[in-house]
């Protein structure tokens, strides 16, 4: 399953403060799009709004031919959106195996056995509780949990955050291995190295809007512009 994500003029915020101020973006079928931006520009708010954790005040979110903006979270998930949230949010009291079991809805493509083949570390830790895992193991578990939903669109919110460099490499390898799966991915990432290595296209967000959209190669070709957009001195 794969789908185009088309976000049009999406607005959302908390109370009276507007965080997303008319976001427009697309993620093509099977495309990996990296979303960059400084802290506080609205990247995580965008992810939360796409997942339905936050209700948009205006705008449209289409997944394939279906409008999903404003739907309850569980319906957005059933429409084919899965999230690997910031902070991983694995279920602490459940074992690795149960974290996976409750996510698996009968997908033939993604089974717990297949997850254990791709991520053997999780197989070793299958009887451990979520809160007994290292940060890297929790990240793998969060990715695995999302894959078991067999999503059309995967939202990844800072998968490298707080992980040791060697673990980041492992997570990147897993993300790279998903390339052949036809999965559309929207990746929020602070680590440019990670974003550049997995994304086909780079978007930059400033003050709740997308201000740059180009291929990864094009973005990298102009270092000065990249630094300016990301506010790197």
């Amino acid at each position: 399953m794969s789908a185009d994500l088309v976000v049009t003029n999406l607005r959302a915020g908390y109370g009276v403060s507007t965080v997303l101020d008319g976001v427009n973006l697309t993620v093509g079928a099977g495309e990996v799009v990296g979303l960059l931006g400084r802290n506080g520009v609205g990247k995580t708010t965008l992810m939360s709004t796409l997942m339905g954790w936050l209700s948009p005040s205006a705008g449209s979110v289409r997944l394939g031919d279906r409008e999903i903006a404003g739907l309850p979270t569980h319906q957005i998930a059933r429409a084919g959106v899965a999230i690997v949230p910031q902070g991983r949010r694995v279920f602490a009291p459940l074992t690795v195996e149960n974290n996976l079991r409750i996510a698996h809805k009968g997908s033939q493509r993604w089974t717990i056995e297949r997850i254990f083949e791709i991520m053997p570390r999780l197989a070793e830790r299958r009887r451990n509780r979520g809160d007994q895992l290292s940060g890297g193991e929790q990240q793998m578990l969060a990715i695995a949990r999302a894959l078991l939903l067999d999503p059309a669109l995967l939202l990844l919110d800072e998968p490298s955050d707080g992980l040791a460099p060697s673990v980041v490499t492992q997570v990147m390898e897993i993300l790279a291995s998903l390339r052949g799966e036809g999965l559309s991915v929207l990746l929020v990432e602070q680590d440019l190295h990670v974003a550049f290595s997995v994304a086909d296209r780079i978007l930059v967000m400033q003050k709740g809007r997308i201000v740059h959209d180009s291929t990864t190669e094009e973005f990298r070709s102009d270092g000065e512009r990249g630094r300016r957009l990301l506010g790197i001195a």
Binding site: T73, H74, R78, N98, I102
Partner: peptide, 24 residues
């Protein structure tokens, strides 16, 4: 049971359970 695991997961983080397509 899977149902019991879902109940425990909902106690821990209901919002995340909804993101797994579960009508909490």
């Amino acid at each position: 049971t899977k149902m019991g695991a879902l109940v425990q997961a909902t106690v821990a983080d209901a919002q995340m359970v909804r993101a797994l397509g579960v009508n909490t």
